[in-house]
Design a protein around this nucleic acid. Structure first.
Length: 431
RNA sequence: GCCGCAGUGGCGUAGCUGGCUAACGCGCCGGCCUGUGGAGCCGGUGAUCGCGGGUUCAAAUCCCGCCUGCGGCCCCA
């Protein structure tokens, strides 16, 4: 029995998993940087008030919070947007647009289940300054490119909070509460069927006819023009700002060559209630877990500082991405192309010094090289190298030292070649 | 917060209609093997059976509570 375990919902990241995470990061980070975003790291621990300011008291039960030794109320961040918004809202030096990203962990006190942990990582990209939908198009395009970089084909489902709000209000939702319940119902549309959605909308306060109309709108998955055609004059006037933004978005997505990967979907709401404009979620084939999502939150920085900055952003969960990649078999392909790791074996006490010299030469060329740090015979050294993560063994014995010709063994196949150190260095040097 | 399933050496399991010293495979350590790993054989290491309580002459086994893991609901990423 293990006496000391990790806290509920917390997982150690072992060697194999870390290799995968590093691989993911090496794929997605260059994409994000190529769009001009620059990396930051907001503090992991915030004042509890800072965290509460964003999402209200209700968020408390999801926060890890505690008092520090001076009695201050602090909490672990539950997303990256809080910290970023706080940073930019008090920064008056940087000209707009401010484009930032982070790839970092956050914490939520939730019941753990499939694809959900109490500590999880996100890649998160945020643009502060522009009100134009150009910025939304940019982060959507970036999200699609990030997925592509790890080998996933994604599609983005787009909606607009003001459009949704206008529609449900015209259809009969009177109060803030009723609008919220309608949103909540729409959010579930993919999981439940037409009938259940209809019921939920009606219990949220929509009259039967309106509810049926909305259900049809949601499931018809019409494009922008189709949607306009279906909305009555009264509705159109209510939501014309939102529709104009979506027009701009679609046009811009066309210029970015991403239009074919995007579609309108009125069931996209995004739970967080600070979203107030375009919202979207990215899915990959064969998975109904959303792999990234985001949208516009124009009023968030006003909470944290006097610099008012409209904002839009996109974020995706690293753990969910790993689940999706596992299903597609990306990682097993990675296993096959193991990076070069050399074990430099000696044959006796005397050649140990020479083996260290050879390993050092390899290391200077950027090749991963080790020698034995246990007092082991050659047999045992090779046995260790063969069982581990090494691709090659390089044998340094008296014969090799005197002739300058070394034996390089490819461990998987067992094939050996005899070459000079220089030739071996050239052979193994990473590109 | 609610519901379902599960928990036996580091890992995977057997035992679970109560009854010898809890069994097996993998791993790890060593030997056969003083310049060539993966195979084989031999030996070793390693479990108060998740924790606590109860029933019983006797509990890994039956009952209750808790914890943890997996999955679902709510919510979310």
């Amino acid at each position: 029995m293990t006496q000391f375990t990790t806290p509920r919902g917390m997982n150690d990241i072992g060697v194999e998993e870390m290799e995968r995470r590093l691989w993911i990061q090496s794929k997605i980070e260059p994409v994000i940087r190529s769009y001009g975003f620059r990396r930051v790291e907001p503090t992991f621990i915030e004042h509890l008030d800072t965290l509460k300011a964003k999402s209200g008291e209700a968020i408390l039960q999801e926060i890890y919070y505690f008092k520090d030794k001076a009695g201050r109320d602090l909490g672990l961040r539950f997303d990256l947007t809080v910290g970023m918004a706080r940073m930019v809202a008090n920064d008056f030096k940087t000209p707009e647009p401010i484009k930032l990203y982070a790839i970092s962990p956050m914490w939520r006190y939730d019941e753990p289940q499939a694809g959900r942990y109490r500590c999880f990582w996100q890649w998160d990209v945020e643009t502060y300054g522009p009100t134009e939908a150009y910025a939304d198009a940019e982060v959507i395009s970036l999200g699609l490119d990030v997925m592509k970089s790890v080998g996933l084909n994604a599609t983005v489902h787009v909606s607009h909070r003001k459009l949704l709000e206008g529609v449900v209000r015209v259809l009969g939702a009177k109060t803030e509460e009723q609008v919220k319940r309608c949103f909540n119902a729409l959010d579930k549309a993919q999981k439940i069927g037409r009938d259940e959605l209809n019921q939920l909308l009606q219990s949220a306060g929509l009259p039967a006819e309106s509810s049926q109309l909305l259900v049809d709108l949601v499931y018809s998955r019409a494009d922008l023009d189709g949607l306009k055609a279906k909305l009555g004059e009264g509705v159109l006037r209510q939501v014309e700002d939102a529709l104009r933004e979506l027009d701009v978005l679609w046009d811009e997505l066309g210029s970015l060559d991403k239009k074919q990967s995007c579609s309108l979907d009125l069931s996209i709401v995004r739970g967080l209630d600070y979203y107030d404009g375009i919202v979207f979620e990215g899915y990959t084939e064969g998975s109904n877990l959303s792999l990234f999502g985001g949208g516009r939150y124009n009023n968030l920085t006003a909470i944290y500082g006097s610099r008012h900055l409209p904002a839009t952003g996109v974020a995706g969960g690293i753990e969910r991405l790993m689940l999706a990649l596992e299903q597609v078999g990306v990682f097993s392909k990675l296993e096959e192309q193991k990076p070069v790791r050399v074990f430099v074996a000696n044959t006796d006490e005397q050649t140990r010094r020479d083996a260290i010299g050879v390993a050092t030469a390899l290391r200077r060329r950027g090749i991963v090289a080790e020698y034995t740090i246990k007092d082991w015979p050659l047999r045992r050294q090779l046995s260790f190298a063969g069982a581990g993560s090494y691709t090659h063994a390089l044998i340094v014995g008296r014969k090799e030292v005197s002739t300058g010709v070394y034996t390089l063994k490819e461990l998987k196949s067992g094939l050996q070649v005899e070459k000079s150190l220089q030739e071996i260095l050239d052979m193994l040097t990473p590109p």
